[in-house]
Amino acid sequence: MVRQDQATLCVSLSEVQAYARVETGEEEALLAGLLRTASEWCETFLNQALVARDFELDLRSGESWTMLPLQPVRSINSVRRKGDADPLAASAYRSDIDFDGRGHIAGLPAGDTFVVSGSAGMGLTGNEIPEPIRQGILRLAAYLFANRDSLVGELPKAVTALWRPYRKTGLCR
Rank of each mutant, 00 (worst) to 15 (best):
residue 62 G to R: 10
residue 130 P to H: 04
residue 83 G to F: 03
residue 30 L to V: 14
residue 158 A to V: 10
residue 120 A to K: 02
residue 65 W to K: 13
residue 129 I to N: 00
residue 123 G to C: 02
residue 43 E to M: 15
residue 82 K to T: 12
residue 46 L to G: 01
residue 34 L to S: 02
residue 48 Q to G: 02
residue 25 G to D: 06
residue 159 V to H: 12
residue 84 D to W: 14
residue 168 K to M: 15
residue 159 V to Y: 08
residue 77 N to I: 08
residue 83 G to D: 02
residue 18 A to C: 00
residue 148 R to T: 00
residue 107 G to I: 03
residue 27 E to T: 12
residue 10 C to N: 02
residue 42 C to D: 05
residue 71 Q to E: 14
residue 135 Q to A: 08
residue 42 C to L: 01
residue 32 A to E: 13
residue 67 M to G: 13
residue 168 K to R: 15
residue 96 D to A: 13
residue 147 N to F: 03
residue 60 R to M: 10
residue 134 R to E: 00
residue 88 L to Y: 04
residue 113 T to W: 03
residue 87 P to N: 10
residue 12 S to M: 01
residue 63 E to D: 12
residue 4 Q to N: 08
residue 173 R to G: 14
residue 134 R to K: 09
residue 51 V to S: 06
residue 24 T to D: 13
residue 22 V to R: 10
residue 64 S to D: 15
residue 153 G to V: 11
residue 21 R to G: 02
residue 45 F to Y: 15
residue 45 F to R: 05
residue 170 G to F: 04
residue 133 I to P: 03
residue 73 V to A: 05
residue 99 F to S: 15
residue 153 G to L: 14
residue 109 P to Q: 10
residue 89 A to T: 11
residue 152 V to W: 05
residue 168 K to G: 02
residue 99 F to P: 00
residue 117 S to G: 04
residue 81 R to M: 14
residue 119 S to N: 12
residue 172 C to L: 15
residue 29 A to P: 04
residue 31 L to F: 05
residue 78 S to D: 12
residue 164 R to L: 14
residue 1 M to P: 10
residue 5 D to L: 06
residue 50 L to M: 09
residue 142 A to K: 06
residue 112 D to S: 11
residue 31 L to G: 02
residue 156 P to Y: 09
residue 73 V to N: 08
residue 34 L to E: 00
residue 106 A to W: 01
residue 152 V to H: 07
residue 75 S to Y: 09
residue 69 P to K: 14
residue 14 S to P: 03
residue 138 L to D: 03
residue 40 E to V: 09
residue 53 R to A: 08
residue 96 D to F: 03
residue 90 A to H: 11
residue 139 R to M: 10
residue 156 P to N: 10
residue 104 H to N: 04
residue 18 A to N: 12
residue 80 R to H: 06
residue 90 A to P: 03
residue 143 Y to H: 15
residue 44 T to Y: 07
residue 33 G to Y: 02
residue 66 T to H: 11
residue 166 Y to H: 05
residue 109 P to A: 10
residue 133 I to D: 02
residue 1 M to G: 11
residue 120 A to T: 01
residue 33 G to D: 14
residue 105 I to R: 07
residue 170 G to M: 12
residue 1 M to I: 03
residue 143 Y to W: 14
residue 94 R to D: 08
residue 131 E to Q: 13
residue 90 A to G: 09
residue 78 S to H: 06
residue 59 L to E: 07
residue 170 G to V: 07
residue 153 G to S: 14
residue 52 A to G: 11
residue 10 C to T: 00
residue 81 R to A: 13
residue 25 G to Q: 08
residue 43 E to P: 01
residue 147 N to S: 10
residue 33 G to S: 11
residue 26 E to D: 13
residue 48 Q to I: 00
residue 77 N to D: 15
residue 88 L to D: 02
residue 106 A to L: 02
residue 157 K to H: 14
residue 39 S to F: 01
residue 12 S to I: 00
residue 173 R to I: 11
residue 67 M to K: 15
residue 26 E to Y: 09
residue 81 R to F: 08
residue 66 T to K: 05
residue 61 S to E: 07
residue 58 D to R: 15
residue 89 A to H: 11
